[in-house]
């Protein structure tokens, strides 16, 4: 099948804390995580808050807080993703679509923020093209984030992430708080990116968006990867789902069985 773009093996993220005096202890964030995203594929990482899905994104991008301690290996197109390699690839080949509109600089016109990282010679033209692609008016480029609506800002965030050279897109919770139409729009944009050949890692806690847009769904809980299921298995009673936790999750949805679940999963 397609070549793997991102390969994460045995990833561990811990936080060093002072536990009284000079003794330190490490609080685990992610433990022993393996996953792979391939060219043209959307992999959804599903999990509740605190399950470690945002840490996974931060670890890949190298933007974890200073007291974080990373073990294991992250490979991008077969090579280890080191600090030097990140410098060359972030913003060009690896792009991040963040969760919140507070990720935009409040004092910079949005057009300028989209132009960051583009070749200065063609940046202006490229930014116009991106604005047109995401249904933003040309004049909006000169406006500041506080002058645009939430939906427009989200489209601006998309525009910042889309580059001709992009091979891997990491989208962190791009849908919460949006109405159904806007969610559909965001998911459509992600599909387009994958159709252009990018590998997309979609981080979300919205099961329905995850299963409608992704090929495979990785379920996280308590900093571990529980299971990777095929998106098509999330249907009916979820009998096709391999792991009981995924089944519980699926059946707990109101439109399904709305079961309380309550099974504690231990490994």
């Amino acid at each position: 099948m397609n070549t793997p773009i991102l390969t994460v093996s045995e990833l561990g993220v811990g936080f060093v804390q002072y536990a009284g005096g000079l003794r330190t202890r490490t609080v685990p964030g992610i433990t022993g995580l393996d996953l792979e995203v391939r060219e043209g594929e959307i992999l959804a990482v599903l999990g509740a808050s605190g399950s470690g899905k945002t840490l996974l994104a931060q670890a890949i991008l190298g933007i974890l807080p200073h007291n974080a301690h990373v073990t294991g290996e992250i490979r991008y197109r077969g090579e280890r993703l080191t600090a030097a390699r990140r410098r060359r690839t972030l913003g060009r080949e690896i792009s991040y679509i963040p969760q919140s509109v507070t990720n935009l600089d409040p004092l910079m016109p949005v057009g300028g923020q989209v132009r960051i990282g583009l070749d200065p010679k063609t940046a202006e033209q490229e930014q116009r093209r991106l604005f047109a692609r995401y249904g933003l008016a040309d004049e909006a480029a000169r406006l500041y984030p506080f002058e645009l609506s939430g939906g427009m800002l989200r489209r601006v965030l998309f525009a910042t992430g889309v580059r001709d050279t992009v091979r891997l897109v990491i989208a962190d919770e791009p849908t919460p708080g949006l109405h159904a139409e806007a969610v559909a729009e965001v998911l459509r944009h992600l599909r387009e990116l994958a159709a252009d050949g990018a590998a997309v890692l979609l981080i979300t806690h919205d099961i329905l968006s995850a299963v409608t847009v992704a090929e495979r769904v990785a379920v996280m809980n308590g900093g571990r990867l529980v299971t990777v299921e095929s998106a098509s298995a999330f249907t009916g009673e979820g009998d096709g789902l391999g792991h009981p936790f995924a089944r519980e999750l699926w059946r707990a949805l109101p439109q399904n069985r709305f079961s309380a679940g309550g099974v504690e999963w231990r490994w």
């Binding site: 972030l90 913003g91 060009r92 963040p98 600089d105 004092l107």
Partner: peptide
């Protein structure tokens, strides 16, 4: 520590670029 500087890092902006693009004005 802001979200927009974290995002700038994730977009591969260097320390000097972050200062020039976001740090100074803010």
């Amino acid at each position: 520590n802001s979200d927009y500087v974290a995002f700038a890092r994730a977009r591969g902006e260097t320390g000097a670029q972050i200062f020039k693009n976001h740090g100074f004005r803010n």
